[in-house]
Design a protein around this nucleic acid. Structure first.
Length: 480
RNA sequence: GGCCUUAUCGUCUAACGGUUAGGACAUCGGCUUUUCAAGCCGGUAAUCCGGGUUCGAUUCCCGGUAGGGUCACCA
């Protein structure tokens, strides 16, 4: 038989339902997904729920929601089933039993007779002696028959060093200390990760295991298991760790990693998140930094995955997001703006303003920024010092505002338009030492914001009455 | 402590033995403008240290230092 067809790529993302996903998990999912997509392969979502004590209710839905939001899709998973169902490990116990029995029959697995306390005391002792803990140092000579009430351990028969090739890191090795009689099936009947993932990946035909680097040191155990079961091993693709904000420790939930869905709530675009995450741990080499989802998939290559850990800064994320917002087609932009804007702001005049402001000026970094325009229907609270422009005296600012006010007041309601307002105010401003000493206090009096649209458009949208009210308020504040 | 592993501007990175060590974010300066912002242009800024190998090392090797991972009936 001629094997002329390359094996179809199958990748998976296999989170455990212990809470929300943070960017570390999403990044892993993203790479596995992108690799499958790029190779017209299969991407599977599998839930590793073998630790019932740590399980957090609602996690699975939350995980699915997170993945769907960023735009990662799967063709097999717990929510849609598939040819290798079920996709929750807690429902695949029969498979683990089957392979466990094979190992028992081969004499490569045995029941652990110790109590948890006894094992714990072995561990303590090893720790005190500054030695790595190895259960096999205490391996029982005549273990009892495995009846399912005791943990089942894998028996390492050949204690040796291992060498293997990682698609990212190249040649890796580990000493015999990395090899131990680890638990295959816990006393509650559920398998451990170490055992379960190997069986599942086998049965699901996974070709590339993509995961973060914390699994490097347990890889020899996996290799020993592949050998014991006479399995062909899949490709290992080790992803670099993502460091926390301090750039030192690996990012984790304990130290501030936030729920990935928070980014959605903060107004980031899913494609911007893909772009951002793509570059944490991978780089295509060019100078292009803004990528669409399709460009990312196209460019993605295991060879360019980094080996050293990367950090991230949210300032850069803001910039990436801004660039993605700028590139949004106008109708998409409007749709997004509508979704983010409070009901009160669905004013005819305002939407085009924001669209223009985004496309022309782009000071809006997230869609939430565009929603922070509630001053249009709610009078802002401002402080006198913010009304001051540079070192101009508050007396002067006050008189400038009064002059502007007079001029605006004389304008007829129907003439109160952008062009007219601009002409009036610029006329006043041009007679001053600096235009800012007129324009700045007006802009601030109308918006109460350090950054805002220009004063003319603000006045236009607010209307004559509200504009007059707000300028009066500013003047009265300056009088105090 | 054992084992594994990593190391380029403040931050994220490019470089597959020969470059004035490139880019982005941030920062600083200038320009533009209708105040702020945004935009445009420009500047400052890096190969952890010590040995080798080589005509030549950011790049290859060894040691040191510093960081990360792991040593669970967690994944």
């Amino acid at each position: 038989m001629i094997e002329n067809k390359q094996q179809k790529v199958v990748t998976r993302f296999a989170p455990s339902p212990t809470g929300f996903l943070h960017i570390g998990g999403i990044r892993t999912a993203l790479y596995a997904w992108a690799y499958a997509k790029k190779n017209n392969g299969t991407f599977i979502l599998r839930i590793e729920d073998t630790d019932k004590a740590r399980e957090v209710g609602g996690s699975i839905d939350h995980i699915i929601e997170s993945l769907k939001w960023i735009g990662i899709d799967w063709s097999e998973g717990p929510d849609i089933s598939g040819p290798n169902a079920p996709y929750k490990q807690s429902e695949r116990l029969a498979s683990y039993q089957k392979y466990a029995k094979i190992l028992v029959e081969k004499g490569l697995a045995y029941a652990d007779p110790y109590t948890e306390e006894e094992v714990e005391s072995f561990r303590k002792k090893a720790e005190e002696e500054k030695r790595p803990f190895l259960y096999r140092d205490h391996r029982p000579e005549n273990p009892p028959v495995w009846d399912g009430t005791k943990p089942l351990r894998f028996k390492i028969t050949d204690v040796k060093s291992y060498e293997w090739v990682d698609e990212v890191r190249g040649k890796l090795k580990a000493g015999p200390e990395a090899l131990d009689d680890f638990i295959l099936i816990k006393s509650d009947g559920y398998p451990t990760y170490n055992f379960a993932h190997i069986i599942d990946d086998l049965e699901m035909g996974v070709t590339h295991i993509m995961r973060a680097d914390e699994f490097i040191s347990s890889t020899p155990k996996f290799l020993a298991l592949y050998e014991a079961l006479e399995l062909e091993r899949p490709s290992f693709v080790t992803l670099p760790p993502i460091m926390g904000a301090d750039g030192k420790k690996k990012l984790g939930k304990r130290d501030g990693a936030k729920d990935f869905l928070e980014y959605r709530n903060e107004g980031y675009l899913p494609d911007a998140m893909i772009n951002f995450l793509a570059f944490i741990g991978w780089n295509p080499g060019g100078e292009k930094e803004i990528l669409t989802k399709e460009e990312f998939i196209n460019l993605f290559d295991i060879k360019q995955i980094h080996i050293s850990g990367g950090g991230f800064n949210e300032e850069k994320l803001d910039w990436i997001n801004k660039e993605h917002i700028k590139r949004l087609p106008e109708e998409e932009l409007e749709k997004n703006i509508f979704a983010w804007l409070p009901q009160e702001l669905h004013i005819k005049k305002l939407i085009p303003l924001i669209v223009e402001r985004i496309s022309k000026f782009s000071d809006i970094k997230t869609m939430v920024d565009s929603g922070e325009l509630d001053f249009f229907y709610k009078e802002p609270a401002y402080e006198a010092s913010k009304l001051i422009y540079k070192d101009v005296s508050s007396q002067k600012i006050k008189s400038n505002l009064e002059e502007a006010l007079d001029s605006l007041q004389m304008t007829e309601e129907e003439d109160f338009t952008f062009e007219k307002i601009k002409a009036l105010l610029m006329d006043i401003a041009n007679h001053m030492d600096s235009r800012g000493e007129v324009l700045h206090p007006i802009r601030f009096a109308l918006s109460g914001l350090d950054k805002s649209p220009d004063p003319f458009i603000l006045a236009d949208i607010l209307g004559k009455k509200e504009t007059i009210t707000r300028i009066n308020k500013a003047i009265s504040i300056l009088s105090l």
